[in-house]
Design a protein around this nucleic acid. Structure first.
Lengths: 186, 186
DNA sequence: CGCCGAGTTGAACTGAATCAAGAAACGTGG
DNA sequence: CCACGTTTCTTGATTCAGTTCAACTCGGCG
């Protein structure tokens, strides 16, 4: 679903607003493995994923790459803590599949919000989802063991199981690939 | 610091706004162990803690009480996922110390925001802090072991170590009280 | 065909949980 | 102010989930 269509699922969008959104957000078709953001720099961009799949990840002390989250089609993603604090992010974002990505800077996005207050609904919606996601994640990590975390993940994201490699899922769940393999075979 | 003084640290507040805030938020002096919210019901309230300390917690399957987070003076706290989803919260909030609490319903708060746009800054500030907190929490839980989590917690919250019982901190860190005791004695 | 990355399986090891018991600190009433 | 019970904290022995390291299988592709 393209960006404007997605926005319309949240709130009605006037034609002028639609035009403004299309002016601010640039859509690009990008190949698998493309980096939307590289670690070590401030990320001031907001991304909407029309199609495809991306992954936010991180290299730990031993240099092992650890998935922080997956970002599916029809969602927004950003490194919001980097933007809010204006600090370099230690996360990178890469495409796991070829994707169509709409992107805008937060600065532009905020101007857009000011000029088109109907979009505030979208803003709340996006923030709300960021918060709910984070909450669920904390609960999974704090209260559940490896088996349960995998089950919760699999139930919530049946589609991702096919699209993402075992290693990426394992690091997302905070376990090793071997353990995940064993869990999977009951 | 009382609520209005706190708001002034975020953004300038007009006298009319100050009056409106004081009309909407009710301040109460409450005893230790008082429950700001009981699990099982939707929590539509937003709390500001002027002084004292509270704890958001949860009973797991075995009935063991697990700290989800601590809420210190000069912060807002809420069960935002319960409010956003309008679902009963499985968290309770209790006071660990006698406290002065300002509370308002989200409905009232939103009217306040509509009528006093200067408070949008406060709203963003609060949401921003919720998000940043959640992010830090996820990183701690996903990337660090028990020792490291304790160290991070102790560095960030030296004051809390004195004010909160070991058991509450242990469950917050996702470990047992015995393990925390051992960690503490090096 | 042989290489290569992704996934599986096995054995030894380890961090943290569990169970159990004792020590210290705390508060309340006599 | 002390005595007692309750809660909080510490320490020890044992167990277990998950890691680590290493070898092996499988499917794809030059």
């Amino acid at each position: 679903m393209n960006l404007v269509d997605f926005l319309k699922t949240v709130t009605p969008i006037a034609p002028e607003t639609e035009a403004a959104v299309n002016r601010v957000f640039k859509a690009e078709e990008l190949p698998k493995n493309y980096k939307l953001h590289e670690q070590g720099t401030v990320c001031n961009k907001l991304f909407y994923i029309e199609s495809g799949l991306s992954r936010t990840f991180y290299y730990n002390e031993e240099g092992k790459d650890i998935t922080y989250r997956f970002n599916e089609e029809n969602t927004f993603t950003a490194l919001i803590e980097s933007y809010l604090n204006q600090k370099p992010s230690f996360y990178s974002i890469e495409l796991l599949e070829p994707a169509i990505i709409h992107s805008a800077s937060f600065a532009e996005f905020e101007v857009l919000l000011d000029n088109h207050p109907e979009l505030m609904k979208v803003n709340s919606h996006v923030l709300r989802n960021f918060l709910l996601q984070s909450n669920e994640r904390i609960i999974a990590l704090q209260f559940h063991n490896a088996h349960e975390r995998y089950k919760i993940f699999a139930d919530k994201n049946p589609g991702l199981l096919q699209r993402v490699s075992l290693g990426h899922i394992a690091s997302y769940l905070g376990i090793t690939q071997e353990t995940l393999s064993r869990i999977r075979s009951r």
